[in-house]
Design a protein around this nucleic acid. Structure first.
Lengths: 152, 152
DNA sequence: CGCGCTCCCGACCAAAGTGGTCGAGAAAGT
DNA sequence: ACTTTCTCGACCACTTTGGTCGGGAGCGCG
């Protein structure tokens, strides 16, 4: 239930691309803007490219840019591109697990977990991130003081 | 963003204990009931014991039982006991990360993610699991057909 | 007391994942 | 040609994951 550095880096780099708009942005610029090790970032951007999130061109005026408009790319798209499926249990999707005996209703719990993860990650787009104007449902979640409390 | 086998096993074993009620239940019985490798399960139960979730006694009439009433133990308690803090980013809690530039609002997103995870995991207790009667908010999430769809 | 049963717990293990770095290419521009 | 920049596989140290093994320590019973 943790978010890897890779996923965090990927979203941050993509946000930077969304903010840049049209022109290709060089890897080095992204790396410096978000304080990410360049060579690691290049691997991440390559994965994003393979997953159709970004495009790239080499050479002097090369760089990376978003393959789609920023409001059509969700945080979930990016997380899935670098981390694989969200909320898998034992590396299998929750809808495929079969429980025996007293833990039978547990499947519904994992399904609910995934649904609630999606409710945030699918809803927030790169456009939302760079504008600082998050969907109201997400803003509401983040507004509660409880949400900022450790453990609780 | 995945659930480890250990966490899944831990919750299932705890559910079995909750269903058993009073008397100590032997590790072997739990292992068979939920189809979990016994020796691995023992390590998990030990962790649960260290975290005050279960108690144990050795010897002929020994076994494991819940340290608290089943309706006072949440799934989150168990997941935290075996997997550590929920929804950490780069191994630091989301409220402590500092973002620069265009990814500044990303912190709120991770906070919202954690809040939504808690909304399920803290809410469901072992008593809910064994009764099959989940909290209505969780039941509602699991009721949507979308929640059962892969990727989406 | 002795004995068996069961938990306790550290050691070990193979495979995979994390978070990188290095170095050689291959395209694009000038 | 030559530089710039992406491409991409190899490698690396460390941790995590998902276990197994074997001994020891406590508990109850005859």
């Amino acid at each position: 239930m943790r978010v890897s550095a890779k996923a965090d880096y990927a979203v941050r780099a993509a946000a930077e691309l969304a903010a840049a708009g049209e022109g290709p942005v060089k890897g080095g610029v992204l790396a410096e803007a978000q304080d990410i090790p360049l060579q690691f970032l290049e691997h991440i951007l390559l994965e994003l490219k393979h997953n159709g999130i970004v495009r790239a061109r080499r050479g002097a005026k090369g760089g990376y840019w978003l393959a789609k408009p920023a409001d059509e790319v969700s945080v979930a798209d990016i997380v899935r591109a670098v981390e694989g499926p969200i909320a898998h249990v034992q590396s299998t999707p929750p809808e495929d697990i079969e429980y025996r005996g007293n833990s039978e209703p547990l499947q519904k719990v994992w399904i609910a977990v995934r649904a609630n993860l999606r409710a945030v990650l699918e809803e927030v787009t790169l456009a939302d991130l760079v504008s600082g104007d998050l969907p109201t449902s997400v803003e509401a979640l983040a507004a509660s003081p409880d949400a900022w409390a450790p453990r609780s």
